[in-house]
Amino acid sequence: MSGRVVFRSVWLPWLLVAPQLAITAVFFLWPAGEAILQSTQLPDPFGLSTQYVGWENFDYLFGDRYYRASFLTTAIFSLSVTALSMGVSLLLAVLADGVIRGSGVYRTLLIWPYAVAPAISGVMWLFIFQPSIGLFPYWLKAIGYNWNHVLNSGEAMSLVVIASAWKQVSYNFLFFLAGLQAIPRSLIEAAAIDGASPWHRFRTIILPLLSPTTFFLLVINVVYAFFETFGVIHTITAGGPGQSTMIMVYKVYADGFIGQDLGSSAAQSVILMLIVGVLTIVQFRFIERRVHY
């Protein structure tokens, strides 16, 4: 980035970055600051005045059984979404990479669910699994299983995981396929000549060479499951039944907007900011390394 002094002007560069900075200041930095400020305050019951309470909101949060539970719920949810969507897409990508003819067609057919919004994915899966009218509960009933995610928290969790993972398969598939196609054929052929079975080839050659892509997708999927699945939760379960699908992002919304507990919601925001911060740094450090490949 050195030696590139091309144009000289004192005011023009500021004018150019002004829109970006203005938006950032008003809608990013200011609210973030507010969140930090509010996280140390407690409004009185009538919302007329606020009082500085220091760490009290945080103390209260970590003492709250439900908040601790939402940590665990978030962890289970993110890991399940990541594992399910990455597993399915890796399988599909390996298959698509293996066919000579038609891999373009398969790709087209597989990538467009990316265009489906998480909320719409939620609506669709809800329709399919709706306990009284859905097709799947009907089939399940035929084999003697009574599906009702409105009451059963395990089923609720499964449903939001499926709806979230389904949407993300396209994205993962695309990157896995690109990663697979970047592996030199000669390596795989050499292993085949050495007598390695397809499974052995996959485990000892393809998987290790795919590890940069896998790690990258891991981070992206965790971020997705953390923050972008709000629509899925909101349309399917709204955090229920009980608090069984109350992931952290949803809880910020539920406590702040529905519960009107601003201090707690702000404290949760601050904790989430720290988590995104860590994830962003992990992602960037990794990408920096990837550039040096």
Binding site: T24, V26, F27, F28, L29, W30, P31, A32, G33, E34, A35, Q38, F227, E228, F230, V249, V252, Y253, G256, F257, L262, S265, A266, S269, L272, M273, V276, G277, T280
Partner: peptide, 17 residues
């Protein structure tokens, strides 16, 4: 820094603004 501040983590204050 804006990378670290998705809407989801600053819902209430952004709404107020």
């Amino acid at each position: 820094l804006t990378l670290m501040l998705p809407v989801e983590v600053r819902i209430v204050p952004t709404y107020e603004i």
